Amino acid sequence: MKLQHYLGGLEGLPEPLHFEKRVFVEEWEKRIFGIHVAMMGLSNHLGSALPQYPIDEVPTTFKDEWTWASLRTGAEAMNPFDYFKFRYYEKWLGGITQFFIDQGYVTEDELRSRQEELAAAVAPSPPESAPAIDDQVIDYLRKGDSPRRDVAHPKFSVGDRVRITNVPAAAHTRLPGYLRSREGTVERVFEGDYAYFVHTGDGIGDPMPIYIVAFPPEELFGARAEDGPLTIYAELFEAYLEGVQ
């Protein structure tokens, strides 16, 4: 995971934060969100998800796996300068576009040609009707995608002191950089073991316990921590925790 994806605790960022409350600022952002949802609704991994979907019977040319992890991996692979230059859904668009190019669904020349057509205001051809595909995506929106789960097998209990690991990050991780090697206290143990969408290479993937860990600000930020009764909480997979002797 690159620097731009764990900015917690850093000072002196070049621009002030903007607390935009609208989900979609521009109309085109709704379409990007829709494309992402449709890809998740047609993803191969749904064949083994709960509830199961008859994904092999859906007549779609999309034959790959696409989850939230895929979207996040694409964003994390961006050049940091591009990451800060683009808007939120522009990053989504970049990741989705690169995925389609890498997987051979479209070439860069085809994409460039289509961009020129749109710039010239050429009306796009209406899409062919695909009711079976529409039905599958609608079914996915109603049922969702429950990750693989199991009954809880926690190694730690509420009140235990734990240290956050500093495992090397592969293409994608769910461990924020500013928590690495820090110590906290288990505040809550979730009711079951939960899997992540994919195996990230840093320990998560199969079902495992998830904890809420509490950190005092001075543990994370040292002398820069602000005074006051503040506590920082993080939800973390068990693979990211180790016991403190």
Rank of each mutant, 00 (worst) to 15 (best):
K91W: 12
S146Y: 09
W66E: 05
F156S: 08
P80A: 02
A120L: 02
Q115H: 07
Q52N: 03
P127K: 12
F84C: 05
G95L: 03
A75K: 14
I96D: 00
F99W: 12
P126W: 08
Q98M: 03
G74K: 05
D135G: 12
M40G: 00
K143M: 14
K85M: 07
A75V: 13
R87V: 01
W68E: 10
Y89R: 09
V58F: 00
P51V: 00
Q115E: 09
Y105E: 01
N44G: 00
I55Q: 01
L71A: 08
A121G: 09
A75S: 10
T73K: 15
W68P: 04
T67H: 02
P59M: 01
F86M: 14
P154R: 08
G41A: 04
A130S: 15
V137G: 13
K63Y: 07
P51S: 02
A132V: 12
I96E: 09
A130Y: 10
T67A: 00
A119V: 10
A123M: 11
P80L: 05
S43W: 02
V122H: 14
W66N: 00
V122S: 07
L46Y: 05
M40W: 00
Q136N: 12
S146C: 09
S157K: 15
K63F: 05
P124I: 05
F81N: 07
A132M: 15
L71H: 05
F81I: 10
E65N: 06
Y105K: 02
T67D: 05
S125G: 10
P127H: 13
V122A: 11
Y105M: 03
Q103K: 13
R114P: 04
R148S: 12
I96K: 03
Y89D: 12
R87Q: 09
K63G: 01
E76M: 11
F84G: 10
A75N: 10
S48P: 02
S157V: 13
A119E: 15
S70Y: 04
D102I: 00
F100N: 02
F84H: 09
G47I: 04
D134H: 13
K63Q: 10
F62R: 01
H45P: 06
F100I: 04
F86E: 13
G94D: 12
H36F: 03
P154E: 07
I96C: 02
F156W: 11
R149Y: 12
D145P: 08
K155A: 10
I96M: 15
Q115D: 11
Y53F: 09
L93T: 11
S48R: 10
K143D: 11
L50Q: 03
E108N: 07
P59T: 00
T61I: 02
Q98P: 05
L50E: 06
N79T: 01
E76W: 08
Y53W: 00
Q52F: 02
S113D: 15
Q98K: 11
Y88F: 15
K63R: 15
P124Q: 07
E57G: 03
T97G: 02
G94L: 14
P80Y: 03
A49F: 02
P124N: 07
R114G: 04
F99Q: 12
K155P: 04
D139K: 14
W68Q: 08
P54T: 00
Y88M: 10
K143P: 03
